[in-house]
Design a binder for these strands. Structure first.
Lengths: 121, 121
DNA sequence: CGATATATATCACTCAACGACCTATCGGCG
DNA sequence: CGCCGATAGGTCGTTGAGTGATATATATCG
C-alpha cells in the first residue's frame, strides 16, 4: 500500500513545491526542471497526480477557466513538503556518495593498476 | 528496447564501480551505499544484473568457489562507467535544483504571504 | 537438529510508466 | 474556411521493473 516515491512522482512534488500548478503546467515544469530530459505523458502525469493526492501529498486547489480552457490546480500539502524534503536529503546523500565512488575510480581505469584482486577466470 | 536507468539499476552499477562483485555482494554493497534504505531482493537483483549485462554495462568476470559456495563475479564495462557517470551528473543537477526549490520555500510556508495567486475556487 | 547467513536462481503477481487515443478550445497559417 | 500545433483535460491497454515467495545448497552457530 505504501506510496512509492519514484523519480517521476518526486519531480511532480518538486514542481508543485515551486508553486501551485495545474496538470499541464506540472508537465512543463518537470520538463524544465530536468532540462528536457524527463517528459511526462498524460497517462503518467494524471496517474501520479491521483496517487500523490490519495497519499495526502497534494490537494486540489480550485479550478480556473483561462482562455476557455479549464485549469485544475494542485497544491502541495505539508506532508508532501516533508516527503519531498526527506527524499531530497536522500538523493543528495546518494549523489554525494556516487561522486566519491567515481572520483576514486577515474574514467578508463580497469581495476587497480597495482594488482588485480584474486584474478579469477 | 532502451535500457531504463532506474534507481535500483543505478545503485547496482555504482556498487560494481567500486569493485567487481558477485551478486550477493552487490546486494550488500547497495544496502551499504544507501545506509540500509534500499535492499535488493533476489528477484530484483538478478533481474537487474541480467539487464545491465545485456545492455553491455557489465560483464561476467569469472567464477570462484569460496567455502564451497559459488560466486559469480561481474565487472563494470567502460560503457557502464560512462552511463553511471552520466546518470550521476544528472542526479547531482537534480539534487542541486531540488535544494534551490526547497531553500526558496521554507517548511510550513503556505504560498506567498503577500498575496494569493488569483485565488480561484 | 534447526536457525541464520551466504549464494544462486526462477516464478507469478502487481502496479507504475508509457504510448496511443479521445475531447475541446484558441491562435496562426494558407 | 480548414488544418495544425499548443494548451488542457482524461482514459485505456500494454509492458516491464520490482517484489515476495519459493527452491537449492553449503557453512556456521547454538
Amino acid at each position: 500500500m505504501a506510496f512509492r516515491m519514484t523519480e517521476q512522482s518526486y519531480l511532480v512534488l518538486l514542481a508543485l513545491a515551486q508553486q501551485p500548478r495545474h496538470g499541464y503546467g506540472v508537465a512543463q515544469a518537470v520538463k524544465d526542471l530536468t532540462d528536457g530530459a524527463v517528459r511526462l505523458g498524460a497517462g503518467t502525469l494524471y496517474g501520479i497526480l491521483d496517487r500523490i493526492v490519495a497519499e495526502g501529498y497534494a490537494e486540489a486547489s480550485g479550478e480556473q477557466v483561462v482562455d476557455g480552457r479549464l485549469r485544475r490546480y494542485y497544491r502541495l500539502t505539508d506532508a508532501g513538503g516533508d516527503a519531498l524534503a526527506a527524499e531530497t536529503t536522500r538523493l543528495q546523500a546518494l549523489a554525494r556518495r556516487a561522486h566519491q565512488v567515481l572520483r576514486a575510480r577515474p574514467a578508463g581505469q580497469l581495476g587497480f593498476t597495482g594488482r588485480t584482486v584474486a584474478s579469477a577466470v
